[in-house]
Design a protein around this nucleic acid. Sequence first.
DNA 1: CCAAAAGTGTTATCGATACACCCATGT
DNA 2: ACATGGGTGTATCGATAACACTTTTGG
Lengths: 254, 254
Amino acid sequence: MIDNKVSQETSQPIAYNPHVSIDCVVFGFDGEKLKILLIERTIREGDGNYSDKKLPGSIIYQDEDLDTAATRVLNELTGLKNIFLHQFHSFGDPKRTSNPRDKNWLEKTTNTKIGRIVTVGYLALIKISRKIIFESENTTARWYDVKSLSNMKLAFDHNQIAEEALKHIRHQVMLQPYMLFELLPRKFTMTQLRNLYDLILETKSDVRNFQKKMLQIDGLEQLDEVQKNVPYRAPRLYRFNKRKAKISKLKPGF
Amino acid sequence: MIDNKVSQETSQPIAYNPHVSIDCVVFGFDGEKLKILLIERTIREGDGNYSDKKLPGSIIYQDEDLDTAATRVLNELTGLKNIFLHQFHSFGDPKRTSNPRDKNWLEKTTNTKIGRIVTVGYLALIKISRKIIFESENTTARWYDVKSLSNMKLAFDHNQIAEEALKHIRHQVMLQPYMLFELLPRKFTMTQLRNLYDLILETKSDVRNFQKKMLQIDGLEQLDEVQKNVPYRAPRLYRFNKRKAKISKLKPGF
DNA sequence: CCAAAAGTGTTATCGATACACCCATGT
DNA sequence: ACATGGGTGTATCGATAACACTTTTGG
């Protein structure tokens, strides 16, 4: 971990000690759009208030693992347990917390002088149907359309983190579709599945070919049930049974 | 320097402040085996010395990005610049530095009281042919057969980190072969390429099919040159031309 | 009966796999 | 001449991609 020579540096850089946080990029799917969960942040500034958005996250606690910290943050925010979580990248640019607004906000909310924060990015997926506490203590969280991200200036480097998370989920879904089932309700139609797939990958799949491919997946079960209250022919429902799922091998290819 | 002795006794967990390091899993290929670069670590213990191995790594310096830290560590160790580097995972189990031997060693080498370290894992690939300074100041590094890893007890959680790096490179090579070219000499034979591929993926590729697939890769150029001093028909040499390489799209599939 | 979306099969093309013999070189 | 590994092509199989009409339901 540490080379001997490090300690011999005259400037003793080793004593410098950044904080470590986790940030969660939480995606949801409302049947139409891909959504991201953001927290309202208000900063008192001279005469007025400045308000913007940030990713849910937290400094890690003592004796807390990274995964545990991410789980805690999501649980505090949503009340849910068993959220799909996946570490995807860490961000450590020394300038990522150097915006005065961000520095200011950090010191006020943590009561600590904070020099630098290295953050570990997590991707989280939520079934948007699950009813969620979004007013935990004094934070307000809301779903935003992922497409509107590019017009928002998020706190810190959170735009970049969200962008990386998007790349990550696209990559994963391209290779294996399992993440999709974390975003859909427990019972879903093939059209919902296809729409979500195409939304994430920005593709237009052929209805028949898509169905054929999906039905090869172990664990994807067709139910004897149809969607109700639709003003047209009721579509069949499907369910993804994790227990019966065997993770398929990736195909080599360049 | 930042004063971070804010209090580890208070109940405010946020004041707790781990160190952040990077660790590099450096792979090389000697034509036969996949190798990993490890550093000798010696710990004075009562009457004798205890010696084991660790990954190259370092606490990150003030104002240093994560990638920069990894580049620095590798440059200090090998004298090389432009090493292929890829962040793959971060490790933050609070117990990862709790072995008394590791704690002891950390405090001696850093002259700092270190409670906890979160480390960011990097995968690095080196052309083993490049002549390398392996005796930088007072560290000794050597190549070890990756297969012997399971019989070694590395420092900290470095066995786990190396294992994850292996998974990562397998995954990457399966999807796209570009990492292989970082491990081979600038000019290489198709057999070397195939052996390396099969070594990493634990497969046995068909000679003809493998060649066909590889020759589709943009940037892989056949040279008008053959390997010399071989006691049999001299094999043709190839080169991977990064400039002409277009990163191919991944194929969807489950 | 009209609108809206669901459901369903076949063909063509492409890529992946399996497989065996002759060639060039050094000793 | 022989031993060693290098170099090469074809046929089969399976996967992917393209493509259009009929069915169900609610209003």
